[in-house]
Design a binder for these strands. Structure first.
Length: 894
RNA sequence: GCUCACGUGGCGAAAUGGCAGACGCGCACGACUCAGAAUCGUGUGGGGCAACCCAUGGAGGUUCAAGUCCUCUCGUGAGCACCA
C-alpha cells in the first residue's frame, strides 16, 4: 500500500458520479401542469433561496448554508410525495459588473456570464438538487422584458382608496392620471451620491452615507421615477400578520413603514387668514401645547415671519439647508431654532402660542409642523428648556383629584412624562385616561371642523430610477416633457451597445450618451434612466414557476399551481405518516398535526431562506409588487412568501466576520476537495441552529466526515486487496427490540426535526443510530435501508451509492430520491418499563424502574420505600407527593 | 438614547416548567500495530477519598420543581435614530 493518505471513504468518485447521473436523468426536474409526468393530484412544495449576485470572487462557505437547508427540505418533501419546485438563478444586474467593465473595457454581459458559470459549477459541486431547466438571469432580455412589462402594469394603474386596491388607470375618474399612477415621474429632492454617480432609494442610504461603499449622499431636486409604495403602507403592515416569518423581521418591516395613529389639528395663525395643520399622536395633550414649530422648509414660514425676525429666520433657514443629511443626524444632539415673531391660536382654549422654526421638525413627515408639548415630549422639553418656553403638565401618571379646572400648574417638571396617564388641566378632558382623552378630543375637533383622526407613515415612495448603464431601461418615451409607455409588443427594450458607459459625473445618465438609441422618433426620445437592481429580484420567484414562457411573465396555470397548489396541498406534510396518525391516536402517541390545516395560507412560496440583510429592502419591495400584481389579477395570492427563515452568518474560524482583508475566508471548493460535499453539507447543518451566527471549524468538518465514514463502514469493508466490498449486512436478520426502538425513534426525530429545520439535532440522532449499529453484527439490511432514506437529504451522494451497492433497487425499491419517506411505528417507541427519578424536595435521590401501567399508588409506595428515600425522609413528615408520569416522583417533606 | 434578540463545559451545542450538558470537536487512557496514521473501546462541568456539595452572566421572585416564567441588572449582537 502506498503511503498516500487514504480517504476515509471514496467520496471523490461517488460524488462526481451521482452529480453526473442526476443531470443525465433529470432527477430533480419538476414537471409543470400540462407537461409529461405531471400529476394534478400531487401536492406542491416551493422551496426558495434568495438568488445570489454572481460576483467575481465566487462563493465562500457562508453562501451555501441557506441553499443546503432548502435543498434538504426539498429532497425530504420530494420523498414525502410532493412535487417540489427548487430552482436557482442569478440577480446579475449590478454595480460591480459595471465598474469592472469600466476598468477593463470588457462588456458587463461577458463578465456576468463568466461569473454565472463559476457560481453554477461551485453550486453543482455541493450536490444541490436544483431544477436547472428553470434557471433565471435578470440580465437576460427574455427575463427583463417581463420586468419592464411589470413596470408598465405599475405605470398603467392607480391605487383606489375606496376599494383598497390597484386598478387600471382608466378607472380613475379624477383629473390628471399622471398624478395617481403607481409608477410616476416626479421632480423632488432625492438622494444623490456623487461618488457612485447615481441617486439612491431611502432604503439604500444609511446615516447619510450610501449603503454600498459608504459614500456621502446629498439631497438634490431631480426628475426621477418613483413607485407609489406608500399607497400600500397599510396592507404591507396588516398582511404581515398571516405570515410565518420571524417576529423580528415583521417588526423591522412595521418599523420601516412606521405607521402611527393620531390626529391632525388645525391652528389659526394670529392676525392672518392662514391656518397651520399639525400632526400629533397625542391629541390628548392639546391643552399642554405652549408653542408651535414649523420645519425650516415649511411653506408658511416666509408668510408668517415678522419683519424684525426676518433676518434671523433667513439665516437659520440657510444654515439648515446647507447641512447634509449626515450633518443633520450628527448634530442632532443639540436642538436649535428661531422665533418667527408670529403666533398661533390654540383651537381649544384660544391661547396665543409663539411659532418657531427648528430643524428637529422634518419637512417630510406629517404636515411639517408640530404643536410642542414640552411637558410630555422629550424633544419639545429639551427645546423649551433651551429657549425658556413654558412647560405645562396636562397628563398625570396617577388619577389626581381636585386638580382640574383651568389653573395651569405652576411648578415646571424636571423631566417630561411621555407615558400614558390621566388628563389634567385640560378642561373637559380632565380625569380621562389617555386613550379616552384622545378619542374625546378628536371627536370634539372633528365636530368643530378643527381636526380629524389620521394616520402617518415613515415610509416614503420608492425612488426607482438610477443613473446606470447595466440595468433595465425604462419602456418610456418622452415628448415635450410628457411621458408615455411603450407598447408591450416593443418589449424587451434592450440597452444600446455602448463602449463608454462611465457615469457622466452629473445626474445625466450614461445612456444619454447613446444618441441614436435615445431617438425614438423624430419627436420622441427615450427615458435614459435605468431601473435599480431590486427590480429583477422583485418577481424572480414567479418566473421560476414557468421560466421558459414566451407569452406571459408566468403562465396562469403554472402560477396557480405553484403558488397555491391543489386544494389539499399543505395539509399533507407527511403523506406516509397519515396512516400511522390513525394508529397513533389509538395508542395515544404524539404525531405532529399538519400545520397548514390550522393556519390559512396567504403566501405562495412555502419556504424562503435568506439573510437578514434583506429584511426591509428586497422583502418589502417584492411584497409591494406582488400585491399590485395580485390586485390586477395576475397572481393568485396576496403575499409572495408564506414562510421566511433567516440563516445566520458563518464567521471565520477566528470568530470574526469572513473577509478577504482578514484572510479568514473559507472556500467551499477546498472543503469539498478535502472532505467531500456530503461532509460539507452535513457539517454546515450540524454546526448549530440555522438561524444562528456561528464560527467555521475545520476540525468540525472532519468530524462530520468521520461520521459519514462510519455510515459507509456500517455497510462496507475493505478486502485484502484494499477494495471496498459489502460487509456484514444481513437480509435475514431482523433488528432486536432495542434496535427497533432506535430505528423508530430516529425516524420520528429526523422527520420532526427536518420539518422544524432543526438539522443539527436530526444529525445528532442519526449519529446515535450509527453508534448503536456499529456495535451490532451482522447488521440488518432493513435498518440500513431506513438510515439511508433518512440521511439522503443531508448526504445524498453517499446514501445513493450505498443504496445501489446494497442492491435495494434490485429488490424492488425505487431510486433513493424517489423512495417514499419512512414512517415510524409509535408502538415500538413505548417500553413496558420506565425509569423514574425520585426526588426529595426537588433533588434527585434515587431511581426507580416501574411498569408502564403502574398506578400512582404503587409508584408512591415504591418510591417511599426506596432506601435512599428513607434516609432523606427519616424523621420528617411527608407533606405532598407529586408524580409526573413517565418522568419523576417528587416527595415534599418538611 | 430607544426597540428587539441572545448569554449553558476548554469549544460548537442539547434540553413540551420535570434527572442540565444529548450529539460532535478537543483531551486522557486502553486495544490493534515493530511504530505511527486510521479504526475500535472507555472516560471527560467544577470541588471532594467518599457520602455529598456547587454549577446555565449577576441579584431577587413565582412554583412541589426554573436554563426555561416574572422583575431588576450587567454583557454581546442586530435594527432604528429628532418620524411629533
Amino acid at each position: 500500500m502506498s503511503n498516500e493518505r487514504r480517504k476515509p471513504y471514496p467520496f471523490d468518485q461517488i460524488e462526481a458520479k451521482w452529480q453526473r447521473l442526476w443531470e443525465e436523468r433529470q432527477t430533480f426536474h419538476a414537471p409543470n401542469p400540462g407537461e409529461a409526468g405531471f400529476d394534478p393530484a400531487q401536492p406542491k412544495y416551493f422551496a426558495l433561496d434568495m438568488f445570489p449576485y454572481p460576483s467575481g470572487a465566487g462563493l465562500h462557505v457562508g453562501h451555501p448554508e441557506g441553499y443546503i437547508a432548502t435543498d434538504i427540505v426539498a429532497r425530504y418533501k420530494r420523498m414525502c410525495g410532493f412535487n417540489v419546485l427548487h430552482p436557482m438563478g442569478w440577480d446579475a444586474f449590478g454595480l460591480p459588473a459595471e465598474q469592472y467593465a469600466i476598468k477593463t473595457g470588457q462588456h458587463p454581459a461577458v463578465t456576468t456570464a463568466a461569473n454565472v458559470a463559476k457560481f453554477k459549477a461551485q453550486l453543482g459541486r455541493v450536490g444541490l438538487a436544483y431544477d436547472w431547466a428553470r434557471e433565471v438571469n435578470t440580465t437576460d432580455p427574455n427575463y427583463y422584458r417581463w420586468t419592464q412589462w411589470i413596470f408598465l402594469q405599475l405605470y398603467g394603474s392607480w391605487y383606489n382608496p375606496e376599494t383598497r386596491r390597484a386598478e387600471p388607470i382608466d378607472t380613475y375618474a379624477g383629473g390628471n392620471p399622471d398624478s395617481v399612477r403607481l409608477a410616476f415621474s416626479s421632480e423632488a429632492p432625492v438622494n444623490w451620491c456623487p461618488a457612485l454617480g447615481t441617486v439612491l432609494a431611502n432604503e439604500e442610504v444609511v446615516g447619510g452615507l450610501s449603503e454600498v461603499g459608504g459614500h456621502p449622499v446629498e439631497r438634490r431636486p431631480l426628475r426621477q421615477w418613483m413607485l407609489r409604495i406608500t399607497a400600500y403602507a397599510d396592507r404591507l403592515v396588516e398582511e404581515l400578520d398571516g405570515l410565518d416569518w420571524p417576529e423580528s423581521i415583521k417588526l423591522l418591516q412595521r418599523n420601516w413603514v412606521g405607521r402611527s395613529e393620531g390626529a391632525e389639528v388645525t391652528f389659526a395663525a394670529a392676525g392672518s387668514v392662514e391656518t397651520i395643520k399639525v400632526f400629533t399622536t397625542r391629541p390628548d395633550t392639546l391643552y399642554g401645547a405652549t408653542y408651535m414649530v414649523l420645519s425650516p422648509e415649511h411653506r408658511l414660514v416666509d408668510l408668517l415671519t415678522t419683519p424684525d425676525q426676518a433676518e434671523a429666520v433667513r439665516a437659520y433657514r440657510e444654515s439648515a439647508a446647507r447641512k447634509s443629511d449626515m450633518e443633520r443626524t450628527e448634530l442632532a444632539k443639540e436642538k436649535t431654532g428661531v422665533f418667527t415673531g408670529a403666533f398661533a391660536v390654540n383651537p381649544v382654549n384660544a391661547e396665543r402660542i409663539p411659532i418657531w422654526i427648528a430643524d428637529y421638525v422634518l419637512a417630510g413627515y406629517g404636515t411639517g409642523a408640530i404643536m410642542a408639548v414640552p411637558a410630555h415630549d422629550e424633544r419639545d422639553f429639551e427645546f423649551a428648556r433651551k429657549y425658556f418656553l413654558p412647560i405645562r403638565e396636562v397628563v398625570s401618571p396617577e388619577p389626581r383629584l381636585g386638580l382640574g379646572g383651568e389653573s395651569p400648574c405652576s411648578a415646571e417638571p424636571l423631566e417630561p412624562f411621555v407615558g400614558e396617564g390621566y388628563a389634567i388641566h385640560s378642561g373637559p378632558l380632565d380625569g380621562l385616561p389617555t386613550a379616552e382623552a384622545k378619542a374625546e378630543i378628536t371627536a370634539r375637533l372633528e365636530r368643530l371642523g378643527l381636526g380629524k383622526g389620521t394616520r402617518n407613515y415613515k415610509l416614503r415612495d420608492w425612488l426607482f430610477s438610477r443613473q446606470r448603464y447595466w440595468g433595465e431601461p425604462f419602456p418610456i418615451v418622452w415628448e415635450n416633457g410628457r411621458h408615455r409607455a411603450l407598447d408591450e409588443s416593443e418589449l424587451p427594450l434592450t440597452p444600446p451597445e455602448m463602449i463608454d458607459f462611465k457615469p457622466t459625473g452629473t445626474p445625466e445618465p450614461p445612456l444619454s450618451k447613446a444618441e441614436d438609441w435615445i431617438r425614438y422618433s423624430t419627436i420622441e426620445t427615450r427615458e435614459t434612466n435605468t431601473m435599480p437592481q431590486w427590480a429583477g429580484s422583485c418577481w424572480y420567484y414567479l418566473r421560476y414557476c414557468d421560466a421558459q414562457n414566451r407569452e406571459r411573465f408566468v403562465g396562469e396555470e403554472a402560477e396557480r399551481y405553484w403558488m397555491t397548489g391543489p386544494a389539499a396541498a399543505g395539509a399533507q406534510t407527511m403523506r406516509d405518516n397519515a396512516d400511522f396518525a390513525l394508529n397513533a391516536e389509538a395508542v395515544g402517541a404524539d404525531v405532529p398535526a399538519p400545520r397548514a390545516a390550522t393556519r390559512p395560507k396567504i403566501g405562495g412560496v412555502d419556504l424562503y431562506v435568506g439573510g437578514t440583510e434583506h429584511a426591509v429592502l428586497h422583502l418589502l419591495y417584492a411584497r409591494f409588487w406582488h400585491k399590485v400584481l395580485y390586485d390586477l389579477g395576475h397572481v393568485s395570492t396576496p403575499e409572495p412568501f408564506q414562510k421566511l427563515v433567516n440563516q445566520g452568518i458563518i464567521l471565520g474560524e477566528d470568530g470574526q466576520k469572513m473577509s478577504k482583508s482578514r484572510g479568514n475566508v473559507v472556500n467551499p471548493d477546498d472543503v469539498i476537495e478535502a472532505c467531500g460535499a456530503d461532509a460539507f453539507r452535513c457539517f454546515e447543518m450540524f454546526m448549530g441552529p440555522l438561524e444562528q451566527m456561528k464560527p467555521w471549524s475545520t476540525l468540525g468538518v472532519e468530524g462530520s466526515s468521520r461520521f459519514l465514514a462510519r455510515v459507509w463502514r456500517l455497510a462496507m469493508e475493505e478486502n485484502q486487496a484494499g477494495e471496498w466490498v459489502v460487509g456484514p449486512v444481513s437480509d435475514s436478520t431482523e433488528p432486536d427490540r432495542a434496535a427497533q426502538k432506535v430505528i423508530h425513534a430516529t425516524i420520528k426525530k429526523v422527520t420532526e426535526d427536518i420539518e422544524a429545520l432543526s438539522f443539527n439535532t436530526a444529525i445528532a440522532q442519526m449519529m446515535v443510530f450509527v453508534n448503536h449499529f456499529t456495535a451490532v453484527t451482522p447488521r440488518p439490511a432493513s435498518a440500513l435501508r431506513i438510515l439511508l432514506q433518512l440521511l439522503n437529504p443531508i448526504a445524498p451522494h453517499l446514501t445513493e451509492e450505498l443504496w445501489e451497492r446494497l442492491g435495494f433497487e434490485e429488490n424492488g425499491a425505487r431510486p433513493l430520491p424517489s423512495e417514499p419517506w419512512p414512517a415510524y411505528d409509535p408502538s415500538l417507541l413505548i417500553e413496558d418499563e420506565v425509569e423514574l427519578a425520585v426526588q426529595v424536595n426537588g433533588k434527585v435521590r434515587d431511581k426507580l424502574v416501574v411498569k408502564l401501567d403502574a398506578t400512582q399508588e404503587t409508584i408512591i409506595s415504591t418510591a417511599l420505600a426506596a432506601p435512599k428515600v428513607q434516609e432523606w425522609t427519616a424523621g420528617k413528615q411527608v407533606k405532598k407527593v407529586i408524580v409526573v408520569p413517565g418522568k419523576l416522583v417528587n416527595i415534599v417533606v418538611g
